[in-house]
Design a protein around this nucleic acid. Structure first.
Lengths: 252, 252
DNA sequence: ACCCATATAATTGTCTACAATAATGCTCTC
DNA sequence: GAGAGCATTATTGTAGACAATTATATGGGT
């Protein structure tokens, strides 16, 4: 609202330099890892299915892994809870969330509404510089897809939608999108039924071109189709699926 | 750098606003105040216009007012930032947000989508016990209105919408509603053009009865009408309004 | 009188030690 | 040998001290 979010460059939320930094950490002297970077690492680990739902994230454990103080880990966990990736139970600890099928549907429902609004406002007032940013972003997505860089694909795929919201300039929409994208990552990690991490940059490219032409109607239609596509690749039927819940897993 | 400074309300640079939050602290028993209670106090102070947008919430000040440690105040401020009531600028502090007209419109747009969804799901599966809770709540609202208890009116008015989301049982929708209601409180405090704090419990009552009858279509229509009503009582035209921005206020 | 650099004061950010709480393992009793 | 109660351990929560940062006030130069 009061433009703190907008004041910061988008890379802070999806820093592409993350892994470079971690490499340097090992090679050179100790480099401080920020709260935001911890959030980022955990988020990616969840999105890449390295951290499964229900797992407890112990503060001291994380503190030693990232070589930071426990206080900073705590902040990161609070932020992760806000993003809906983690549940904090008082005096118990933080656990990776287990979104229900209903949750997943709700998230996509709200996403459709919010992204529709974003595209609307984007078509109202678009500038050439912003179109360049969007096209550059899609180009990066293409590159990541070709080279099959999983981590980058995940980050850039969400980053596209976040970029749209950022260009609109509404802090509220930006924050809401950020929240929705984080949750979508978790939902995708839990419910996707194949190994593809997104549906490729082609649909994003089409949306950008529709916006470029100022064709709001088409852009909105493409966006809705895009989101339906993403949702359709998920396994949102109430089928029994592998779970950390011992009782459910051992029941016959 | 420069943009960051310009984003700040000008009266921050003229620290004559040393006015504290007036809270009736019961010094008799010295009860521990939880983080959540601090959040609620600040939220109500903002909603009741006792705290104006742009005011800085200094940690030590709050700590002494509530007689708690600064650490707890910090947590409360982080929570308030999440709710969109406060902006935290690194190394500068926390300030009450100044939502723009566009922000206000976005919030109401998203609210319409989310509440529509909530009502839909509520009509799908309603139970009698839940209807009782809703009716009791509306009754409380009526009482508060009759007795003209401002604080209660504000709390109950938002609480109604929160209760709907709670009954649905989706953590995601509940959290989203919570967020939207907090932001709406701030927006209402800034932009409402009369002294009424809500539009009375009658519209809430109608919605409850529509849900009771399982008439989803009517319930949704009533809800949308209700939200439009609330929004229409705001002064969301781009008229010049009293502002904390000295430059704007002094320009002719 | 204005601008710039510097010193001081006020405020936030971080860390570490300690307290409170919940989970685990053990022992005693029946 | 099973179960309840107790002790131990592991983990989270809190507070206070200190470091870093920013804003304000001061003074000299132009």
């Amino acid at each position: 609202m009061l433009s703190k979010l907008r004041a910061l460059p988008i890379d802070i939320y999806f820093p592409m330099t993350l892994f470079c930094i971690t490499v340097e950490t090992k090679m050179t002297e100790r480099i401080e890892i920020s709260t935001q970077q911890i959030v980022e690492r955990v988020w990616l680990s969840i999105a890449e299915r390295r951290l499964r739902p229900g797992v407890q994230l112990k503060e001291e454990q994380l503190a030693s892994i990232f070589d930071v103080s426990r206080a900073r880990v705590r902040q990161a966990l609070v932020a992760l809870e806000r993003d809906g990736l983690v549940t904090i139970i008082p005096n118990r600890g933080a656990f990776v969330c287990q979104p229900s099928v209903d949750d997943a549907k709700d998230v996509f429902h709200v996403r459709r509404c919010v992204e529709r609004r974003v595209v609307e406002r984007l078509c109202e007032a678009n500038s050439k510089a912003d179109l360049t940013r969007l096209r550059n972003h899609v180009a990066k997505e293409r590159l990541a897809n070709e080279k099959d860089m999983t981590t980058d694909i995940i980050k850039l795929s969400g980053g596209f939608h976040l970029l749209l919201a950022e260009i609109v300039g509404s802090d509220f929409l930006f924050g809401t999108m950020r929240d929705l994208i984080a949750r979508t990552s978790l939902i995708t990690a839990v419910y996707r039924n194949n190994n593809r991490f997104n549906c490729g940059p082609d649909e994003h490219a089409e949306i950008v071109e529709a916006i470029a032409k100022g064709d709001a109607e088409k852009a909105i239609r493409l966006m809705e189709h895009h989101l339906e596509h993403v949702e359709s690749e998920l396994d949102l039927n109430e089928i029994r699926r592998p779970s950390n819940d011992l009782r459910a897993a051992l029941a016959f």
